[in-house]
């Protein structure tokens, strides 16, 4: 409780010193906006609406497990067989990471592809929208180009327990505000 009391004292002090309050507030905004800038620049560079994704299922095991992070690239190069891609089915929120097992390219360059998880027994037609047989280029958010392990568990836990998210963000914000060494 001692910790909480000290924080409260710090906050009260901060409230009295308006100049310091403005400074710390700007500091907090700077951190948040820098993170946003990095994310948005990644979107521009990779041309993907979601340059980093967290693997949520075990359908690509043992290569990718729940909680792994994948870095995506969505440049214009033609989609080819065997690439691990992340795609999104219309009207469904959760993106899926699977491998392309069939590519049919038309004379005008448009493609129709079929995907399958390495660890699944059957292809993905059962996951697609009712009646959908093929994925189009625009369904694909990007190809997996790099992997980082376990980091995604943080987002998974935060999504499973949304309350934790607010608590954590709140604590971090408080510490940035009351941190005096800046």
């Amino acid at each position: 409780m001692d910790i909480v009391d000290k924080q409260v004292v710090e906050l009260k002090k901060l409230w009295k010193n308006k100049r310091q309050l403005a400074f710390q507030g700007l500091n907090l905004a700077m951190i948040v906006l820098s993170a946003l800038m990095i994310w948005k620049s990644l979107m521009v560079v990779t041309r993907s609406e979601s340059p980093v994704v967290v693997v949520l299922s075990g359908s690509m095991e043992p290569a990718f497990q729940r909680g792994d992070i994948l870095f995506l690239n969505n440049q214009d190069d033609p989609i080819r067989v065997g690439e691990v891609v992340v795609f999104k089915i219309k009207d469904r929120d959760i993106p899926i990471v699977h491998r392309i097992m069939k590519v049919h390219e038309k004379p005008d360059g448009t493609v129709e592809v079929l995907t399958k998880g390495d660890n699944n027994r059957v292809d993905d037609r059962g996951l697609y929208a009712p009646g959908q047989l093929w994925l189009q280029r625009e369904d694909i958010l990007g190809r997996a180009r790099g992997a980082l392990r376990y980091v995604g568990m943080v987002t998974i836990v935060l999504n499973d327990y949304p309350a934790l998210k607010y608590v954590l963000v709140g604590i971090m914000g408080l510490f940035v505000l009351t941190n005096k060494e800046a």
């Binding site: 290569a63 080819r80 065997g82 097992m101 390219e105 004379p107």
Partner: peptide
């Protein structure tokens, strides 16, 4: 892991390029 797979590639009248995985192994 290495994911190894055999691909059949062919051209038809409708599709100038078709690629199909025939066999794979982890």
């Amino acid at each position: 892991q290495i994911f190894v797979f055999v691909v059949a590639e062919f051209a038809t009248k409708t599709n100038p390029l078709n690629q199909i995985i025939l066999w794979d192994k982890i």
